[in-house]
Amino acid sequence: MDEPVPPDHPGGLVVTRRRHRAGRALAPYLLSLPSGLWLLLLFVVPLAFMLSLSLKTCNPATGACVMTWHWGEFPSEISLYHQEFITSLYFAAVSTLVDLVVSFPIAYWIAFYGGRRKNFFLLMLLVPFFVSFVIRTIVWEFVLANNGVVLGALKHIHLLPAGFHVLGTGYAVMAGLAYNYLPFTALPLYVAIERIDRRVLEAAYDLYATRRAGFLRVILPLTVPGIFAAFLLTFIPMFGDYVNQEILGGTSNTMIGTVIQNQFLVNFDFAGGASLSAVLLVVALVGIYLYARLLGSRTIEEYL
């Protein structure tokens, strides 16, 4: 049987110390390994695959693709589907604006008057979004149906003509988008408003600012980074969204997300779908770049 090494034994100490030191040097790499692998396998590889796919030529029947460095896919896809890009841009812009206008007062109220129940109110804001995205959108289909709870009732009391409809129009898509992405606007706005020092606002009132001037000159400028973060988090996913258009938009007003989905799943035009996705990605990156240039790259990390 081995002699137990006393804890103060010099030899034992040296050995454990050395082992600790080696472990400490490796620790950052070991800790970043899972997230590094995750990024590599689920982001870098698919991204590279998608980008390379846009330059390949595929056989729609077999699905086999060959690298041909065919750049022509980009101009032809853009000329074919630029209208869908413009529609997406328009829908996403309007819905983002609606979300900003609707969530600013909500976020402002919770941040300034929520008191001890702030977290409860934030939860209330999020609870509807515990339900699946598709289900929520289908519920909107019921809400906006031609003879549903809203339109049916209004038609019944003759406030709306019998032929009036929302479903199948761009308005329904924008309503669905605005509803589905509301928390992504409200939460960054809340964070931005919440961190405004109340004493700074008091200082503004002390310096002859009326309530209106206090809002325009202090609260609003201090919320700008939050507004921009909210804009990015809402606008970019909306831009590529296809569920709302599929369910609420009917056959008209096709958005680019729907086109990409069809290219892949209906037309089996993998190269075309991939090149459209690449264009979408570039638009998103340009948005982030402009954000970083305008408001500094440091603030972006604080809000995302």
Binding site: D197, R199, A203, A204, D206, L207, R217, V218, P221
Partner: peptide, 28 residues
């Protein structure tokens, strides 16, 4: 507060973080 001829130096200074020194002083 904005109708009184008194001004305050706050404990935490409460300077406007989005404004430079000139604009801070010029605010009132």
């Amino acid at each position: 507060p904005y109708r009184r001829d008194v001004n305050t130096v706050f404990q935490s200074y409460a300077l406007f973080p989005h404004l430079n020194v000139f604009e801070n002083v010029a605010f009132g």
